[in-house]
Computed example of a mutant assay.
Amino acid sequence: MDTGDGRPTDTVLGERRHLINLAYRLLGSPAEAEDAVQEAYARWYAMAPERRQAVEVPGAWLTTVVSRICLDVLGSARVRRERYVGEWLPEPLPDRAEWPGAAGGASADPADRITLDESVGMAFLVVLESMTPAERVVFVLHDVFRYPFPEIAVILDRTAAACRQLASSARRRVRAARAPSPGQAPSAGQAPTAAQAPASGQDRQAEVVRKFRKAWESQDIEALVGLLDPAATLVADGGGLVSAVVRPVEGGPRIAQYLVLMAGMVPGLTLLERTVNGLPGLVAQRDGVTATVAALDVVDGRITRIWAVRNPAKLTRWTAAGDVA
């Protein structure tokens, strides 16, 4: 089949996975990423065949349109998030084998798979949230997907020099966010690329997460404090729809006390070890329904940050599969 302009359909639709991956890193929401990509394809097919035929590289055209759509969405999102109740966190991603409709360890539609690498880690996505929309688009396109500045300049209708300045500003934000707090070890300052695999220390992180789960289940405050960095931070996102602390909880002892208090207030809570945005994390379920997805940042064997997503609207992709511990 062709698209009506002499090109095979696969030539154009084959760009979908790349576009989904780009849009998720720009927006932090799979649903919004899918909407942005769908809108780009709608604009493509709305053009007359002769206009589509005049486009030499459909993938470049679609990338430009998706990037511009995401830029607009990010601008409006900043306004919406000013009215958001409590902290806003990116939507967490399960392992692709656990996506709704998955079978045999694969997504129902392979073109919709989001590559789970360091550039979708919760820590990295949270840093991206601190950037202006233009900084985020330039940074993701250049530092993650390796687009050259002249191409980005065309996409954003800016000069290459202006795009370089935006990228430099974004990198300063990354370095500032990754600067260690007192008692914490420094983390890598280089932006991960979309082609990189998760860090080789996943096994060590999984072991820390397993110990943390067991300590939480047994409500062992001393063990929890031992696994938490003294300067650790917990951020929760309930979106005003469920109960959640509206401000970060700071300090290992305070976090441990908070977690034990929550466990005591919610009987029958089941803690599962899961892959969250490509790294070991935890899922809390009650009566088989996912109530919380927690991404954790582990440095030198201690948990430095916990991002707990409780907003039900952000948990629709999570299943009630059995424990993997």
Rank of each mutant, 00 (worst) to 15 (best):
Arg7Trp: 07
Gly14Asn: 15
Glu15Gln: 15
Arg16Glu: 02
Arg17Asp: 04
Leu19Phe: 01
Asn21Pro: 04
Ala23His: 04
Leu27Asp: 00
Ser29Glu: 01
Glu34Asp: 12
Ala36Trp: 00
Ala36Glu: 00
Ala40Asn: 01
Tyr45Gly: 11
Met47Asp: 07
Ala48His: 12
Ala48Asp: 04
Ala48Leu: 13
Pro49Tyr: 05
Arg51Trp: 07
Ala54Pro: 05
Ala54Gly: 14
Ala54Gln: 12
Pro58Val: 09
Gly59Pro: 06
Trp61Gly: 08
Thr64Glu: 07
Leu71Gly: 10
Asp72Ile: 09
Val73Asp: 02
Ala77Tyr: 11
Ala77Gln: 14
Arg78Asn: 14
Arg83Thr: 13
Arg83His: 12
Val85Tyr: 06
Glu91Tyr: 03
Pro92Leu: 14
Asp95Phe: 10
Ala97His: 13
Glu98Asp: 13
Trp99His: 05
Pro100Lys: 08
Ala102Gly: 09
Pro110Ser: 15
Pro110Asn: 07
Asp112His: 07
Asp112Trp: 12
Asp117Thr: 10
Ala123Glu: 11
Leu125Thr: 01
Met131Thr: 01
Pro133Glu: 10
Ala134Asp: 02
Val138Ala: 11
Val140Thr: 05
His142Trp: 04
Val154Met: 13
Val154Glu: 15
Thr159Lys: 11
Cys163Glu: 01
Gln165Cys: 05
Leu166Asp: 00
Leu166Phe: 02
Leu166Thr: 00
Ala167Phe: 02
Ser169Phe: 09
Arg172Met: 05
Arg173Lys: 15
Ala176Tyr: 07
Ser187Met: 06
Ser187Val: 05
Ala188Cys: 08
Pro192Thr: 11
Pro192Met: 15
Pro192Tyr: 12
Thr193Phe: 10
Pro198Gln: 12
Gln202Trp: 08
Glu207His: 03
Val208Gln: 12
Ala215Arg: 03
Ala215Cys: 08
Glu222Thr: 05
Glu222Leu: 13
Ala223Asn: 10
Leu224Trp: 00
Leu224Glu: 00
Val225Thr: 03
Gly226Met: 07
Leu228Ser: 02
Thr233Lys: 13
Leu234Tyr: 05
Val235Glu: 01
Asp237Ser: 09
Gly238Ser: 15
Gly240Arg: 14
Val242Ser: 05
Val242Tyr: 05
Arg247Lys: 02
Gly252Leu: 04
Gly252Lys: 02
Pro253Ile: 08
Arg254Val: 10
Ala256Ile: 10
Gly264Asn: 06
Gly268Met: 10
Leu271Gly: 00
Arg274Val: 12
Arg274Glu: 03
Thr275Gly: 13
Asn277Ile: 06
Asn277His: 11
Leu282Lys: 09
Ala284Cys: 14
Ala284Arg: 02
Asp287His: 08
Ala291Cys: 11
Ala291Pro: 00
Val293Lys: 00
Ala294Gly: 02
Ala295His: 02
Val298Phe: 10
Asp300His: 13
Gly301Gln: 02
Thr304Phe: 07
Arg310Asp: 00
Asn311Met: 03
Asn311Leu: 03
Arg317Gln: 11
Ala320Gln: 14
Ala321Ser: 06
